[in-house]
Amino acid sequence: MSFKVVEIFESINGEGMRAGELAVFVRMKGCNLSCNYCDTMWANKPDCEFAEMTAEQIVDRVKKSGIKNVTLTGGEPLLQKDADKLLEAFSSEKDIRVEIETNGSIDLKPFLKFENVSFTMDYKLPESDMEKYMNTDNFKILRKKDTLKFVASSVNDLKKAKEIIEKYELIGKVNIIFSPVFGKIELTDIVDFLKDNKLNDVRMQLQMHKFIWDPEERGV
């Protein structure tokens, strides 16, 4: 049992409910989607270099860092065969908090049993060209410790996000974040949309790491 890991690095969480906190990022190879704004497309290419690592090696690497937050990302980390075995290996480490960044197309039910795991799940909006792949059954099982992220390219995307939030009655059930596609939408448009629609308990968030480092830089 091994996992295709393209990089492991220590940084701060650039987004999510632990934005600004230290985290160890474990980036897995491969994704089943191809969003037109993807900023890690390189990790999804067939010829992308990777290391085969066992669950024990990954957990040991995280423990040696002394950092409590670990973010499993990609690509789509839940596509990895035996992803549940990796989460099981982390489950005995009570001081480690595991966040899974997942793209909204994967059934999350099999991974709910791990108490120290939370999800940051995307809902791909129309301008991503991937909305048709969204698994809306996940809305039934998202919890208050989880996060639902809408990455918007336009005001039309924001309108669709609002429609989804209302249709599935998501406010109060899960943390909700609006995030801009970097360089595609005016930040003031998101603020104005939140104000105009009285979207209480919805949080706007920027990708912090793209303001600290070059937006194209890896391993940050």
Score class of each variant (00 low, 15 high):
residue 1 M to V: 13
residue 1 M to Y: 14
residue 2 S to A: 10
residue 4 K to C: 04
residue 4 K to W: 05
residue 6 V to T: 14
residue 7 E to D: 15
residue 8 I to P: 05
residue 9 F to Y: 14
residue 10 E to G: 02
residue 10 E to T: 13
residue 15 E to T: 06
residue 15 E to L: 06
residue 17 M to N: 06
residue 19 A to W: 00
residue 21 E to F: 11
residue 23 A to W: 01
residue 30 G to L: 10
residue 31 C to P: 05
residue 38 C to E: 04
residue 47 D to T: 11
residue 51 A to K: 14
residue 64 K to G: 04
residue 65 S to A: 09
residue 66 G to E: 05
residue 66 G to T: 04
residue 71 T to F: 07
residue 75 G to W: 00
residue 84 D to W: 02
residue 86 L to W: 07
residue 88 E to L: 15
residue 99 E to L: 08
residue 102 T to Q: 08
residue 102 T to M: 02
residue 114 F to Q: 00
residue 123 Y to D: 09
residue 125 L to R: 05
residue 125 L to M: 14
residue 126 P to T: 07
residue 127 E to L: 11
residue 136 T to G: 00
residue 138 N to R: 08
residue 139 F to G: 00
residue 140 K to R: 14
residue 140 K to Y: 14
residue 142 L to G: 05
residue 146 D to F: 00
residue 151 V to Q: 02
residue 153 S to I: 00
residue 155 V to C: 12
residue 156 N to P: 04
residue 156 N to T: 12
residue 158 L to W: 02
residue 158 L to R: 03
residue 167 K to Q: 15
residue 170 L to W: 03
residue 172 G to N: 09
residue 173 K to D: 08
residue 174 V to G: 00
residue 177 I to F: 10
residue 181 V to H: 06
residue 182 F to D: 08
residue 183 G to N: 12
residue 183 G to E: 09
residue 183 G to H: 06
residue 186 E to G: 15
residue 194 L to Y: 07
residue 196 D to L: 10
residue 198 K to R: 14
residue 199 L to T: 04
residue 207 Q to M: 02
residue 210 K to Y: 12
residue 214 D to S: 11
residue 216 E to I: 05
